[in-house]
Simulated scan of single mutants.
Amino acid sequence: MSKYLLDKFLYTVDRDADLTERYREDPAGTVDWWESTMANALLNSHSGEASTWLRFTDEERAALAGHDHVALFALGAHPFLTLTLFIAMFERDHDEPLFYQKQYGARLAHFELPYPDIAT
């Protein structure tokens, strides 16, 4: 498991409006594409350097493909990264102000301290 890779996915997808829409519409395809093309690229690097070993586990891939922020939290993905990305994808589906944020919190309410470690 790589919390770094989960967070990197969430971070990079959230910062590209086209990629955010692609992830909303085709989550499994986006996860597969991102893993094969972006996972091993150095974050914020334009030098062409890359690593070769980073891969999602099956559990991580399923959580990402399922837009499952509860599973991602349990896996150690940073909750601010999931929240900001998922607001961008799903807030528009609800008319009530802050509906998605409230739903997000309610779905995480069963977690007790100590929370999963979100350090990378």
Rank of each mutant, 00 (worst) to 15 (best):
G29M: 13
S51R: 00
N40G: 05
V31G: 00
S45G: 09
E49D: 11
R55N: 08
W53K: 08
S36Q: 15
W53C: 05
L54T: 14
R24S: 08
A63F: 10
D16S: 08
T30N: 01
D68W: 14
A39W: 02
W53R: 12
A62L: 10
T37F: 02
N40Q: 10
D26A: 14
S36L: 12
A28Q: 14
E59Y: 07
D32K: 10
H46Y: 10
T52N: 07
E49K: 06
A41C: 11
D68N: 15
E59H: 10
H67P: 03
G66R: 00
H69W: 12
E60I: 15
T20H: 08
G48Q: 13
N40P: 08
D32L: 13
A65M: 15
E35K: 00
R61E: 09
G66E: 10
H46K: 02
D32V: 11
T20Q: 04
R61H: 14
L64Y: 12
A63R: 09
Y23E: 04
T52S: 08
T30Q: 05
R24T: 08
R22C: 15
A50G: 00
Y23Q: 03
W53V: 08
A63T: 00
L19H: 05
D68E: 12
Y23I: 06
N44G: 12
W53E: 03
A62P: 10
A28G: 14
T37K: 10
P27D: 14
T57P: 04
H67W: 15
E21N: 09
S51T: 08
H67F: 04
T37G: 14
L19Y: 11
N44I: 04
G48M: 06
E35P: 02
A28S: 15
A17D: 14
R61F: 06
E21V: 11
G48H: 13
D32M: 12
E60R: 12
L54P: 01
R55L: 11
W53Y: 08
S36M: 14
A63H: 05
L54Y: 07
T57A: 15
L64W: 12
P27V: 01
A17H: 05
R55A: 11
D26G: 07
H67R: 06
E25D: 11
S47E: 13
G66Y: 09
T52E: 04
N40D: 01
N44H: 01
L64K: 01
T52L: 10
A50V: 01
L42Y: 04
S47W: 07
A17C: 05
S47H: 06
F56A: 15
L43Q: 04
H46V: 15
S47L: 03
F56E: 00
R22D: 09
R24M: 02
A50P: 04
S45D: 01
D58I: 13
G29Y: 11
V31P: 02
L19E: 15
A50H: 01
D32F: 03
A50S: 06
N40A: 09
S36R: 12
A41N: 04
G29W: 13
S51L: 05
S45E: 10
A50I: 01
T52K: 12
H67A: 09
E35C: 10
M38W: 08
E35A: 07
D58V: 15
R61L: 03
R22V: 14
E35G: 06
T20N: 04
D68Q: 14
L42K: 00
D16C: 04
D32W: 08
E60D: 04
H69R: 14
H46T: 10
L19F: 15
S45W: 07
D16H: 04
A63P: 02
L64R: 13
H69F: 13
A65R: 03
W33P: 07
